[in-house]
Write a protein that binds this DNA or RNA. Structure first.
Lengths: 242, 242
DNA sequence: ATAGTTAATATGTATGTACATAATCACTTT
DNA sequence: AAAGTGATTATGTACATACATATTAACTAT
């Protein structure tokens, strides 16, 4: 048999089944609409229980990769979903695209105690110091964003790197860390004293607040970034399809 | 007991459990991080088996509403109100998912002259009237967003439709218009008199401003939507990979 | 005090069983 | 031929049970 499951492996059976199913899904015949082996048979083939197999199938159904229909069986969803291939650009690249030349008004790199959010995201102890980079950037005549980045110890930054280089290039080339996934949260808020000061605006001014959780290929956290943008200086664009 | 399950109902027990869980999630104490009753107890309380209950929990975990940790229990995921760019859901569906009941504070449908941005997007003559829908929505006790939507004449809306229904369902079922692509722009701004009034906030308050350009399958424009969200009431989340 | 050990707890994994339900196919009746 | 009827099939629902595992909290020994 081509696909099989290792009952002695520490990897849960349903997880193994899931990967096998993904391989099946990738096959051309199933892509073309062939119905997959039914649950009872498949369970027998893999020598796992139907319930366990269903755990795996369920996940893929949730993800939208498979569709099930009573009596009709299970097959690969015909959709061609995807919404991604979003722009993955560094800040300076993004700005360049808009014809804006960026200047660093401030650039500090320090070792700092992480706050609760950072420790939770990095899954480290609260007393473990992390590298923190702060910068204020903007057009030549006015600053319009304050950034703070925290880097996971795993990345291996010393603080002596040249942070004027594009960040993701630096991580990739000097530290073999490849950022592949980012989760962002965007909201609005009023400027407090600290931010008002950095961005040279009155306290209470509207600010676009952006949090970024950046992961590497293994979905391990590598960077936590927060950005405070002066209103009207920044527009966040997204494209999504269904 | 406040929550209970009807074993004789034709609705599957796990589905009933799911709605109950959503109600629980909506409760303030759980929003604030209180751990939910453990599976065994909860199953006993609802008089269903643990497996059935887990079916319901699994779904919510997958949706990202709950997080589970061994030994530590299950609690509501901290994120606030959010919008996932991938899932294509209507506003009310999104809110429902989070157990928030949405109230329409205002709902006006009128024929209006399009502004420059709308005529450009729709590629219509400036004197061609378009259907405009305005609404103020929010939690039962406070409004937190003002929306204005413009619909392309091609869609064929008359203005007599029931706009309390989920919008994309309405378009799809009654007018065979399927929204498949949306381009969004998100930025921050200060509330002007009009918005301050609608959202019951002081003039100058920070507002999250969101423009949406919605297209159908043929990439033809069908809706232009702008939304003004009270700060802190809305977090926009995006996931991107490369 | 500190380190190491152990118990308690809530979720995680896995199986076996039973019956329900939707959709189709084959068959029978009109 | 059309309509109805029943068998078949694969998924859907539901339960009871058992043991594994991660994590904290309490305890114990150094």
């Amino acid at each position: 048999m081509r696909y099989s499951i290792d009952h002695k492996s520490p990897i849960p059976l349903h997880a193994q089944a899931e990967t096998l199913l993904r391989q099946l899904i990738a096959e051309e015949e199933y892509q073309n609409g062939k119905i997959m082996p039914n649950e009872i048979e498949l369970a027998k083939m893999l020598a796992i229980s139907r319930s366990t197999l269903r755990q795996a199938i369920n996940k893929l159904v949730f993800e939208g990769l498979l569709v099930r229909k009573k009596r009709m069986g299970t097959k690969v969803a015909q959709a061609g979903v995807s919404s991604k291939s979003n722009n993955w650009l560094s800040f300076s690249q993004e700005m360049k695209l808009r014809g804006i030349t960026i200047r660093n008004f401030e650039l500090h790199v320090t070792w700092a105690m992480p706050n609760a959010e950072v420790t939770r995201f990095f899954e480290i102890k609260p007393d473990k110091q992390v590298l923190k980079m702060e910068r204020v950037r903007g057009k030549t005549d006015e600053p319009f964003v304050y950034f703070a980045s925290y880097f996971h110890p795993r990345v291996g930054l010393t603080g002596d790197e040249d942070f004027k280089r594009p960040l993701y290039e630096l991580l990739e080339h000097e530290h073999s860390v490849i950022a592949t996934l980012s989760k962002e949260e965007i909201s609005a808020m009023a400027a407090d004293k600290f931010i008002a000061d950095k961005l040279r605006v009155p306290i209470g001014s509207p600010i676009l607040f952006r949090k970024r959780f950046v992961f590497d290929q293994g979905e391990r956290p590598i960077e936590f970034n927060i950005g405070y943008y002066k209103a009207d200086s920044f527009v966040y664009t997204v494209e999504s399809t269904r």
